[in-house]
Design a binder for these strands. Structure first.
Lengths: 202, 202, 202, 202
DNA sequence: TATGAATGAGCATTCATTCAT
DNA sequence: GATGAATGAATGCTCATTCAT
């Protein structure tokens, strides 16, 4: 029956598990805890609903697992690979997030976890503290550099990052359909929050 | 014959109806359209679930009625009664909203309506366009005055207000619990978005 | 409080009770046992839903009472007051029933009682046996006369009446909307069932 | 992988679907649209109530599907396979319908659809027009032959059939239990409606 | 006593979870 | 192991019946 070695089997299992988590991220992010049906996640992961339960005991466990992984793994580090000044990097990074749907999933997830009531406390804690803290630490060097060269506003850098992330998260999840009269704030709007004197009212 | 006069009955009925709407506002705002159960609304309004249906034909009708009322009645006008300059007014107003839970319900409702699936179109329309537009118009004189005296940043005032409201809404719904290390963005943070040169980096 | 004598009170009560029964006849006949709501009957009788229960312990009791009264009181006797031969009388009588809605109520009631499953056995028994029997006895003299003068078909008169009533009942309750191509059987159609040789194929 | 082949699954599914439709036919016919509970249909089809919804979106859809199938498939054509003259055929056919409960379901369904409130319009249309028209067309050759050889009464054949069907439907749904004194109208009674001179008063 | 407000049991429907195949 | 069929608990809604006023 089994032409695969024990090790291969374990690896295969891990791959599938990861595939489920990714499917769940997408579905939970887009539809929220209540709106996401196990059947949708199964379909997205291309396996049967029954199979989900070989990997996760319940919807709740899947959700918490997902949250844990997002809290641990989501990273802001690729911002450093972008070209230009700190200000340029942050703007490009912001714009790319606002453009690419899958980059928004973690933010949407945080949003849903905050708004839904039946979310296990552990999940809320993880998302709110741990992941935001991680993001802040990852962005800190960039911001400090930006403040030194006058690109960014002065003051407590961590507080500034926190503000920026909150606003970014807001933009993503509010997702207000654009209306002709009042264009919504976009990446440049966001940059006002962090911009130093040099950029004000430009 | 009748134990209560016609007039009393009508008044009583209207009172109760309003009580249901208020209970619904709270529950829908906190839990969203799908997370809110009719039984929760009934409990909040202190009557039986069955009774709700004497006032509203369905959960959906209750929701839409609520949305209509919010869209029509929620006002930003009391901001004008606050003391001080436009900047002071906006800051006090913002701070009071961030402090008082019931003031946040309309914003949370908008948030839920935007993120949840299966929200009746009429509700989405009303919340997204009508109510946001109303807020903008109500804040416009204040902002224009603030721009004239240099309190607020220059540029399209409506766009500025829209940005501000988006951010306010974000703060409310993100609702991140304060954590010792990194104080969350608060009213002053928000003011950065609208502040003119005079206030930058103060 | 009471300017009415004991006797007047009792009479008044009886009047109201009768009014309820008549309202119930109409509503049950038109909508059936399940389709008839107590509130509809109350409205038809022009009193409150609560009042019904001062006269009848339950919907079921009201229904059975109604059935009993219909079984006992519905009469075919006015057929004898009509002008003409037995054949003429029966045809006029039939036509009048087919034209006047309230005359059809007892027939519709029988129909509903036969078709609904949750009808108390007593009600079914009463309607099926007792009332049909009464009708037969009331029509018997007319039919016998009709047979003697050759208006009606020969054979067991009771059986003939039973057949006729079944068909009449059918016409009333089937109530098929007339369609241009195939006019429905009407009074003359019905008469074929009882007609003697004299009337065949006229 | 799959424990059953695709083909087997599809066949099985179709079988079960048909089984539900048959259960529904029985329950709807006997109890009517409102009297029939989904749980009853489920029990009759020997599955859980929840399962019904894997095959039909709602009670209404199940009902309409059933009606459609009845309107399309119920046939009078097997009457032609019976032995004897047109008169004999019609009498045997009638008697068999009056004896076999499942043959009566379509008639009962029509009856319920006509009498109940809140029956979807499509269902009424289908039953009243389409199916009755079909029956008429299917019986037309037999009746025309019967009229030619003098078995059946003269006149508009379609009208005659319509009358006959109405009466047959009546007999089925009235369903009066036989009582010793007055034998109920039966197949022979029905034949009086269509019988030509040859058969009168036999 | 009369009203109509309130309750709660019942039914349609959905979906997480289990299980026969 | 894998599938998707089956179950049953939960929830929206209706309406007979009761009860506060």
């Amino acid at each position: 029956m089994s032409p695969l070695s024990e090790e291969q089997l374990i690896k295969r299992r891990e791959t599938q598990r990861q595939r489920i988590v990714e499917a769940a991220l997408k579905v939970f992010a887009v539809r929220g805890l209540h709106g996401a049906k196990m059947s949708m996640i199964a379909e997205e992961a291309e396996l049967s609903a029954g199979q989900l339960y070989r990997f996760f005991e319940s919807k709740e466990e899947l959700f918490i697992t997902l949250i844990r992984q997002v809290a641990k793994e989501t990273t802001m580090e690729r911002i450093n690979d972008l070209p230009g000044s700190p200000f340029d990097k942050l703007r490009s990074f912001t714009a790319s997030i606002l453009k690419e749907e899958s980059a928004q999933y973690p933010f949407k997830l945080i949003q849903h976890a905050n708004n839904a009531e039946d979310v296990p406390d552990e999940a809320k804690q993880l998302l709110q503290h741990f992941s935001v803290k991680r993001y802040i630490e990852q962005l800190l060097p960039l911001f400090e550099e930006g403040q030194q060269i006058g690109d960014f506003a002065q003051g407590n850098a961590r507080k500034l990052i926190s503000a920026f992330l909150t606003m970014l998260s807001a933009l993503i999840t509010l997702n207000m359909p654009i209306d002709d009269d009042h264009q919504l704030p976009d990446a440049d709007m966001l940059m006002r929050i962090v911009a130093g004197p040099r950029f004000q009212d430009r």
